[in-house]
């Protein structure tokens, strides 16, 4: 199993790939926060943000098309937000007669909805850019350097390492079930919902026991190599002046766009 389709791009050489994880993480978070702060309908500011992001994506030598295609993952969530089109007070634009009721769309509602979608779309692209250009262990190092509690970094690091191992075990369990639950053609496939759930529950239980036992073996392996309850790591390297500069300029730019947008 690979983490995602993004693995294909992660070992490329580009100015973005080469940046320290801290710089990328902070800039991404700053970018998403700035987007969230922009008032609805501020198209110019959105355009500026989109321009910045797409420039970065092209610098990272990622295919923009793939990123754009992939960035619609958040789209199902728009279902929840679409209601704002009809509830936000504003100039009525059009009505949808539904027989028992009439939905009236307003201009403010539409603007808000479009803004939410745009923000979400751009945020996902920013996160994709981060994931596509940064190894997870570099992100972990960044989180550690940014003083996330060591225990959380350790959990994340074990979780990342063993995710692959356990997903494979889960897939083996699923395959075993599917082999045994083949049905004759024309017959309803096996059991009530409760029974099927119980089967999955037992699979979850089995997976838990295997995971637990594995964690004990890992613990022994750690003990054998001198573990005594504290996880030691190398101290993070200092950011280069270029990286520091980029961080400052990037965050200043985002602050600028956000501030300006309130006056427009």
């Amino acid at each position: 199993m690979t983490t995602s389709f993004l693995d294909r791009y992660i070992d490329r050489q580009s100015p973005v790939h080469g940046l320290d994880g801290r710089v990328k993480l902070l800039l991404t978070l700053g970018y998403i926060l700035a987007l969230a702060l922009l008032p609805p309908g501020n198209w110019l500011a959105y355009a500026a943000c989109a321009g910045l992001l797409w420039w970065a994506i092209s610098r990272a030598q990622l295919p923009l098309r793939t990123i754009l295609a992939r960035s619609i993952v958040a789209l199902p969530f728009a279902l929840v937000a679409v209601s704002v089109v009809f509830t936000r007070p504003g100039l009525p634009l059009f009505s949808l007669p539904l027989g028992f009721a009439t939905l009236t769309a307003t201009d403010a509602g539409l603007i808000l909805f479009a803004s939410i979608l745009l923000k979400s779309w751009l945020s996902v692209q920013a996160a994709l850019l981060l994931t596509a250009t940064t190894h997870f262990f570099d992100l972990l190092a960044a989180l550690r350097a940014l003083h996330l509690p060591p225990i959380l970094v350790a959990i994340l690091s074990f979780a990342y390492r063993y995710m692959f191992v356990l997903v494979e075990e889960a897939q083996r369990l699923l395959r075993a079930r599917d082999c045994r639950s083949a049905t004759l053609p024309g017959q309803r496939s096996g059991g009530s919902i409760a029974w099927r759930a119980a089967v999955v529950g037992r699979m979850v239980g089995t997976l838990f026991l295997r995971s637990y036992e594995r964690s004990e073996r890992i613990y022994v392996a750690m003990l054998s190599r001198g573990y005594n309850g504290n996880m030691h790591t190398l101290t993070p390297r200092r950011l280069t002046p270029t990286e520091q500069g980029l961080l400052v300029v990037g965050l200043a730019l985002l602050t600028g766009i956000t501030t300006l947008s309130f006056f427009m």
């Binding site: 959990i155 074990f158 637990y212 890992i218 613990y219 996880m231």
Partner: peptide, 8 residues
């Protein structure tokens, strides 16, 4: 620590 990591 390893237990929680593997549990995640």
């Amino acid at each position: 620590i390893p237990l929680m990591g593997v549990m995640a």
